[in-house]
Computed example of a mutant assay.
Amino acid sequence: MKALVAPRLGGPDVLNVVDLPEPSAPAAGEIVVAVSHVGLNFHDTLVVSGQHVVRPEPPFSPGSEYSGVVVAVGPGVTSPSVGARVVGNEEYGCAREFVKVRADRVTVIPAGVSPRDAATVLVTYATAFHALVQRANIRPGETVAVLGAAGGVGSAAVDVADLLGARVLAGASTAERAKAATGRGAEDVFSYGTADAKQQIKTLTGGRGADVVFDPVGGALAEAAVRAVGWGGRYLVVGFASGDIPSVRLNLPLVKGAALVGVFFGEFVRRDRKMHEENLATIFSWSAEGKLRPYVHDFMPLTEGARAYETLASGAANGKIVLTVGA
């Protein structure tokens, strides 16, 4: 089988496509999936470079999100069955033609949703949904300021917040990237590349500040974003796409009666699979009804995996990048 492999830790340039043996027969509780699509996420680039909490020993395949068709099941597996269309999320190892995984770590793709669509929404939309519903306890009519709104998880947060009845303010590093959120559920957009994020959010909220700030960017932007939270608001720590983990003055949430809330999607899935599946049921129902608007930068073949990761790592991607494998 063909597989995208990192023979050592480093930048996207270390990645190359090689021939590997297909997986052995699945053991008890396992299945083998013929992969059709691999959804790329920013944290995958950190795994390749060795900057993520997950540090596999090279050589390994990157890619944490995939969709495809079950081609073999191990003893004791009653669901999914051979031929079922499934979507799944692992820590790494998915950018290849076949994966062998635990059967209880996949979700059957419902009717009305294609494997292609499933791979564009699984991680980003499920992360945004978990952040806004379980962590922020968002309520209809609240104002949500989304940073990094032109990226994969940021654009998903714009969609999800809008569908949950919030007023959405979408921010990005440039005015051009911010405009991408118009017509996608954002009531107003702003650029924080050359202007103060706090002041813009305050202006757009009539001085009150945002009820929720969704921040997958971190870095130098974080303190301004925390200052933009209104009384009783919630600042969601989603990630650090800027590359820098910020330090925040704790007097800021104190004087605002606000909360700094961590969003660790992978650990949430491990600890509460039932709630994760309930979240996915809502997300896939929205997808089947045509309510989701996944913002996809490009679909690229597995053979161009290194270029796809370079586009993602450089911040040049507007939205999601998906590798097509067996499609």
Rank of each mutant, 00 (worst) to 15 (best):
R307E: 03
L164P: 02
F190C: 00
R307H: 09
N89F: 08
N251Y: 10
A308T: 02
G233W: 04
F284A: 05
I31F: 09
A281P: 06
G183A: 04
V38L: 12
T124A: 13
A316N: 12
G232C: 12
Y192T: 12
I283G: 00
R273M: 06
P75Q: 11
D104C: 05
G154A: 14
G185Q: 01
A166N: 14
T311C: 09
W231K: 09
G209L: 11
E223T: 15
G319L: 01
D244G: 02
T203I: 03
T45W: 12
A157S: 11
D211R: 10
K291Y: 02
P75Y: 07
E91F: 12
N16R: 15
V17D: 03
A95S: 15
D298S: 15
F299S: 00
A197T: 04
V106S: 09
A313G: 03
H43D: 04
G165R: 08
D272G: 11
E97G: 00
A288R: 07
A95C: 14
D244F: 10
T107V: 15
R234M: 04
E289G: 10
T127M: 07
A84F: 13
A186M: 10
D159T: 11
S242M: 08
G257I: 07
A186Y: 11
L252M: 11
V106W: 05
A210N: 03
M275I: 14
R234D: 06
A317N: 06
V87S: 02
G50V: 01
V73T: 13
V226W: 00
H43A: 10
E278F: 13
G319P: 13
Q134C: 02
G112Y: 06
A126D: 03
L221H: 11
S61C: 03
A128R: 02
G152D: 04
G148F: 08
D13K: 14
G151M: 13
L147W: 04
P21V: 14
H130I: 10
E278R: 15
L4T: 07
A316C: 00
A25K: 15
E142T: 06
V77G: 04
T203Y: 05
A225S: 07
L15W: 00
C94D: 11
A181Q: 07
C94F: 01
L250W: 04
E277F: 13
A308Y: 11
S64N: 10
A136C: 05
L9M: 08
L132P: 13
G230L: 08
A72T: 09
R102W: 05
M300Y: 05
E22S: 15
A175N: 09
T311K: 15
G290E: 07
S49H: 00
D44K: 01
M275F: 03
E142N: 04
F190W: 03
V237N: 08
V296E: 10
G88C: 03
L164D: 03
V18N: 09
K202S: 08
V237F: 06
G148R: 12
S64A: 15
T203N: 12
R227W: 07
G83S: 14
R273F: 06
F265N: 03
A25T: 14
D215A: 01
K2Y: 02
P216I: 08
G219L: 03
V269T: 12
F240Y: 15
N89D: 02
S36V: 10
D19N: 14
V296G: 13
A170S: 09
A327I: 06
G29S: 14
R135I: 04
G112F: 06
L9W: 14
K320R: 14
P216V: 05
A111D: 15
L40V: 08
A224W: 10
H130Y: 15
